[in-house]
Computed example of a mutant assay.
Amino acid sequence: MLFSLDKNLFKRVPDLKIGIIVYENIVVGDSPSMLKGRLEYFQETVRTDLDERPVDEYEGVKEWRSIFRDLGIDPKRYRPSHEALLRRISNGKDLPFIHSAADVNNFFSLQYDMPVGIYDGHALNDYIKIRLGQEEEAMEGLNGRMNNMEGKLAGFDKRGPFGSPIVDAARTMTTTDTTNAVQIFYIPPSLPQDEAEQLLQAASNMFIQLHSGSNSIYLLDQNKTNFQHAPH
Rank of each mutant, 00 (worst) to 15 (best):
S33T: 12
L9F: 01
A203M: 06
A101E: 04
T179H: 13
R145I: 09
V46G: 14
Y127A: 05
D120K: 11
V27L: 14
N223G: 13
L191C: 11
G213P: 15
I166V: 04
F227V: 01
P165L: 03
M1Q: 04
D157N: 00
T45R: 11
N143K: 03
M34V: 14
A181M: 07
G133F: 15
N147I: 01
V167R: 15
R69H: 08
H99F: 03
K152Y: 02
Q228R: 08
Q222M: 02
G160T: 05
I89K: 10
N105L: 00
K17N: 07
K62N: 09
S190G: 11
I20L: 11
F42P: 06
D51Q: 15
Q43D: 05
K76W: 09
F162D: 14
S33N: 13
S90E: 15
Y119H: 10
P32N: 12
E57G: 06
G117R: 05
E136Y: 05
Y23R: 08
L191V: 10
G213W: 06
Q193M: 10
I18N: 10
R69M: 11
V182R: 09
W64Y: 09
I118G: 10
L35R: 06
I187Y: 10
A123C: 03
I184H: 13
K76I: 07
T176L: 00
I73M: 08
K129A: 12
P165G: 09
E24R: 09
E63L: 04
L85T: 07
I26E: 00
Q193H: 12
S212F: 05
T174W: 04
A154F: 00
Q228Y: 02
P192V: 03
N91F: 11
T176K: 12
F68K: 03
P192E: 03
L2Q: 12
T45V: 05
N147R: 01
G92R: 09
T178D: 08
L220R: 03
M139T: 07
G213L: 13
V27I: 12
V55K: 10
S4V: 05
Q228N: 08
K17W: 05
V22M: 13
